[in-house]
């Protein structure tokens, strides 16, 4: 009677956890961005940790707890490596450095592509100590490329060139304005 009750409890828990894994897989396919997918995969890994531990009690095999511990370590390692690699690749493609100033640079880029005002010139110039590490030239290049596309009427000319060439061209134009 008691054994039967335990079996039903553990089996019901495992079924519910399986349904949660399927729902998380839907999110990992749908999620509109890399971070959503990585979050879903991390959550699937955590639910699998719980599932292996419950299975070890259900089948009364004690070595599955060791498997659970090793799987926790491997899943953590995988998520950390994936995040570092993707951050490095993305920022390298945008020609910026993946150091501590990258969050502020991302915010600055987002502001400058959002509002097409004259304030973008001083935001690109007034850099922090960390922005000086990446080089003010890179920040000005990333910022002024989008600022030029947003505010001036040279969108046709800037769009005809590849993005990096357009950014270099506008940086060459705005360089005397930056370095005072």
């Amino acid at each position: 009677m008691l054994g039967h009750a335990y079996e039903m409890l553990l089996a019901g828990t495992m079924i519910v956890l399986g349904i949660l894994i399927i729902v998380s897989m839907i999110r990992s396919v749908l999620g509109p961005g890399i971070s959503d997918r990585v979050i879903a995969v991390n959550m699937i890994g955590t639910i699998i940790i719980m599932l292996i531990a419950i299975l070890s009690l259900f089948l009364d095999e004690s070595y599955l707890v060791d498997v659970c511990l090793i799987y926790a370590m491997v899943s953590f390692l995988g998520v950390v490596v994936l995040c570092k690699v993707y951050t490095g690749v993305y920022l390298q493609r945008k020609n910026m450095k993946a150091n501590l100033g990258a969050v502020e640079d991302n915010l600055r880029r987002q502001e400058e592509s959002g509002n097409a005002e004259a304030g973008s010139g001083e935001t690109a110039e007034a850099g922090t100590g960390e922005a000086a590490e990446t080089g003010t030239g890179e920040t000005a290049e990333g910022g002024s490329g989008e600022a030029a596309e947003a505010e001036t009427g040279e969108t046709a000319e800037a769009a005809g060139l590849p993005p990096r060439t357009a950014a270099l061209k506008t940086e060459a134009e705005e360089q005397p304005k930056e370095v005072q």
Partner: peptide
């Protein structure tokens, strides 16, 4: 051993959560 799994997970999960949040903050244009 189950307690060791809890201990390891409580150490490792904040680190991986922080890495994912940094990935999001550094690479999302919106």
């Amino acid at each position: 051993k189950l307690f060791l799994v809890i201990l390891f997970f409580w150490m490792a999960s904040p680190v991986s959560g922080h890495m994912i949040s940094r990935l999001e903050a550094m690479t999302n244009p919106n």
